[in-house]
Design a protein around this nucleic acid. Structure first.
Lengths: 160, 160
DNA sequence: GCTATTTAGTTAATATATTAAGTATTGACT
DNA sequence: AGTCAATACTTAATATATTAACTAAATAGC
């Protein structure tokens, strides 16, 4: 018996989930002339006014060599700007321009709506367990366990 | 208050999970001179002796325009071959050559080992719930519910 | 029988991913 | 101060993704 059907392997299930989920979002920002990676960069810049390029690569999951081109095109479109950090001249900081920031109000409502719709398509139990499993895979220590809600911390025992 | 922290959005969690999981597999088949997409094609061909290109695109999640090039390179390396199907001359069937099939015995053991290792890194409960959640997202009616069993629904493969 | 439409595959243009190598700074060390 | 290694980014080469348009073969309708 085969070790595992390829289509039901975890990586393929992850890819299929993304394939099912992303198109709905993509429609929104491609309509605004953005690619998915450009969207990710802006999304991060709205949360961090100014951020070094390396940190941006980590948060967007865009590999540094790819990020170069993404930032080039965003710069060409006047949505971001790069500023060399004087404290360490190897570092390039990135920030959204006013035009870049304006896109937040223009696009976030639609994206948030799709996200709410997506979330509503699963019951909250399934959603929570899914997030938990994904965090485990990512090596990200989850804070909440889907099953046992962490009891409100007992006052008598402070240490584990 | 922000609707949702970008880094904890479901799409980014899915991407991070893949980023965490894939490198371990990738090392194995890049060592054999295969890219990830080439690997996926072969993986499917080992399960289906001969398969039309469209079905191959669906199973590998490689978009048809990309598949062209992937198959070109696999053909150039003597690992697969394309045969036009005489019953419907629009169809191109793809099959692994002997050299392509030989790679299965060469690579599967290592891949299976990594997969077992991956699976062992989560407890089986978490794993089952993760799979369930991913199937829900993919619009794939799950056959097993992590908690309660459910009757399978008739399943139609819709694209788009 | 002939046309319009659909299907399976392909090509083209632009944007990204992947890997390796290269550059400029910085920091550590002798 | 001078060398070496590490850091942050960049460039280069090849492989894929995405979208639209295009071809050939099959099918539906009339």
């Amino acid at each position: 018996m085969a070790i595992q059907d390829f289509s039901h392997s975890l990586p393929m299930m992850l890819y299929r989930a993304l394939d099912a989920v992303m198109p709905r979002f993509r429609r929104i920002f491609t309509a605004a002339g953005l690619t998915e990676q450009q969207w990710r960069v802006l999304r991060v810049l709205w949360e961090h006014n100014e951020i070094p390029q390396g940190a941006l690569a980590n948060l967007t999951l865009i590999p540094p060599p790819s990020l170069i081109g993404v930032l080039d095109r965003l710069t060409a479109n006047g949505l971001i700007e790069r500023r060399r950090y004087e404290g360490d001249r190897r570092v390039v900081n990135v920030a959204a321009t006013r035009a870049g920031r304006r896109l937040e109000e223009k696009l976030m409502p639609a994206v948030a709506a799709v996200y709410a719709e997506l979330r509503a398509s699963l019951d909250s139990e399934t959603w929570a367990r899914l997030e938990y499993g994904l965090q485990c895979l990512s090596g990200d220590t989850p804070v909440t366990h889907p099953e046992k809600k962490r009891a409100p911390r007992p006052r008598t025992r402070s240490k584990k």
